[in-house]
Nucleic acid binder design. Structure first.
Lengths: 231, 231
DNA sequence: CCAGCCTTACTAGTATACAAGATTTGCTGC
DNA sequence: GCAGCAAATCTTGTATACTAGTAAGGCTGG
């Protein structure tokens, strides 16, 4: 397990959650692998309590599976869950971006502009991790502008299914298209064209599904749904 | 605090969560009231651990507010949060009901029929609590039919903001309209008319917002947003 | 009487001990 | 050798002890 640096004023639980999440996305905690509260706790130099509380939260979105008195495992890649997370995100963000067209201020638009400028920068320099963080931030800003931050916060945890697969395909040529998508979406918002903004967002989010087949072939051992038997 | 009966095979944590949630909705744990892990634990004859884990989950959707090392309180009624929960629900359910039109089987349709029959029954007999439960079940079934159960499960917790206000307005004449809405929605699904189904769902969910002003006047002490100062 | 400090009694966060259940390992008797 | 039982050792669930931070109330010195 790869350890992240502690953030200032971060509680043990928040640290454990952030750390475990990151390790799941990076596949350092591999899909299907067994995890133990005790083991994770000692690796992070914490007690079981904050680790356990973090795992409970992750189990709520089915990214960690806790079988009482038996074991906990990192969930296998489940395309049904990814589809559902993807569907939810698409439906919500399309509605959000429509709202954005009616309410984004000049100052907010320029902040989005700034974000996209940085995206282009990291795209050129090949810093794909930073690019992904900016991508997340871009979408979060759209929720903020629509005054729907709480919704973003709530559903964000479910995006991990999505993000794990995204990370597997990192550095693909798709990234260029993604940044361009963002610029087009911003242009539509600026032009107050809700229908166009929605159309672009839908197309944008559908990109993430494209790599499914390739990933399925590259990491067959991580696939769930049907092949895995219960113990 | 009113205690619910234990369910078979329910863990202490699940029981605590169900119990606290119910007491928040029923206003037995009043908006703005201070709650203590210790006190709740002793009232439910549990230790702090499962109670605490339940409260953490509730704090994630901002229905309970935990101030570290200070106190925990039941959130005041916050119309912004209700709006966001309502928006999320509306956007998701409209998309779901559109899907339903394309995929509901005859067997599923008849189960929905059965549910609505029961709704009419409880409406006549004035059993509004049972009616509300059937209402919830109706909407959950729509998610199931669309094969989006995980989404329902995920966002359900946020509906508590919504449900608390709903409970305050319980027994109003609106209930008649609500049951009729359900029947119309089902008819649209049966007729495979996605546009109509969506339109009906949107109108249906907008009903819940109507009582806002009345509730605001009836329970001014429970209102949050601006008037409350930090301690 | 009043200001300021300090004690005390709370809070939630964390660590650890213990309980209950499941699995595995190895012994035992055939 | 093998079937079956049993004990040891895992797991997570729960209870409790301890830590640290906050707030309030009382005491003390002026």
């Amino acid at each position: 397990m790869r350890l992240l640096d502690r953030l200032p004023q971060e509680t043990d639980r928040a640290y454990a959650l952030r750390n475990i999440k990151e390790n799941i996305i990076s596949l350092d905690l591999a899909p299907g692998s067994q995890i133990s509260e005790n083991e994770l706790a000692s690796q992070m130099s914490l007690s079981r309590t904050p680790v356990r509380e973090a795992l409970i939260e992750l189990s709520r979105v089915s990214i960690v599976r806790i079988v009482p008195q038996k074991r906990s495992t990192v969930a296998l890649i489940d395309y049904d869950l990814i589809d559902q997370a993807s569907f939810m995100r698409c439906v919500l963000e399309c509605a959000v971006v429509e709202l954005n067209c009616g309410m984004a201020t000049a100052e907010q638009l320029s902040r989005l502009d700034e974000n996209i400028r940085l995206q282009n920068l990291y795209l050129e320099s090949g810093n794909f991790a930073a690019l992904m963080a900016l991508d997340d931030q871009f979408h979060e800003m759209l929720f903020e502008i629509a005054q729907k931050s709480q919704i973003f916060f709530m559903v964000q945890t479910m995006f991990i299914h999505f993000n794990r697969v995204r990370r597997m395909a990192l550095g693909s040529v798709k990234d260029l298209k993604i940044v361009r998508d963002h610029a087009q979406i911003l242009a539509a918002i600026r032009g107050r064209d809700a229908a166009e903004a929605k159309r672009l967002m839908e197309a944008h989010l559908s990109r993430y599904r494209e790599d499914a087949q390739q990933i399925r072939e590259t990491y067959p051992q991580y696939m769930g749904e049907r092949a895995c038997k219960e113990a």
